[in-house]
């Protein structure tokens, strides 16, 4: 029983890490789009020019949190990959984050 509780706790914190990174990636992705627009359409340089250089590493951290969560929750491979890919489409990472959080909370309370 206590083992189950501590496992739940570990899943909770893995979920929290995933949620933080999903939001960071989602916001980063929007900034990236804004940067592309300013840079290639408006042809101006802004401080946003640092975004492309770091966004890939931010996304990497996102992948690690998805990876962690997917093994804890024993997701099928396809689900893990889809959640990873959701992080590359503007706004979809927010949707994915919301659904995964709701689903995981439902599972945790059910068990």
């Amino acid at each position: 029983m206590t083992e189950g509780a501590s496992q739940d706790k570990a899943v909770e914190s893995a979920l929290m890490r995933f949620r933080i990174m999903a939001w960071t990636t989602g916001i980063g992705l929007l900034l990236l789009c804004l940067n592309m627009y300013l840079r290639y359409v408006q042809d101006v340089t802004t401080v946003l020019d640092v975004v492309p250089r770091i966004h890939g590493f931010v996304y990497m951290l996102y992948l690690v949190t998805v990876f962690d969560l997917s093994f804890r929750l024993k997701w099928p491979l396809s689900k893990g990959v889809l959640v990873c890919l959701a992080g590359t489409i503007p706004f979809l990472s927010f949707v994915a984050e919301h659904r995964i959080a709701r689903e995981t909370h439902a599972d945790l309370t059910a068990s």
């Binding site: 250089r53 890939g56 990497m60 992948l63």
Partner: peptide, 20 residues
């Protein structure tokens, strides 16, 4: 350096896939 950073990022993704 921007392209260099992208290059490193791609390689990291590849390593991550192996890890997974």
């Amino acid at each position: 350096w921007q392209n260099a950073a992208y290059g490193v990022q791609w390689w990291l993704f590849g390593i991550f896939a192996i890890f997974w």
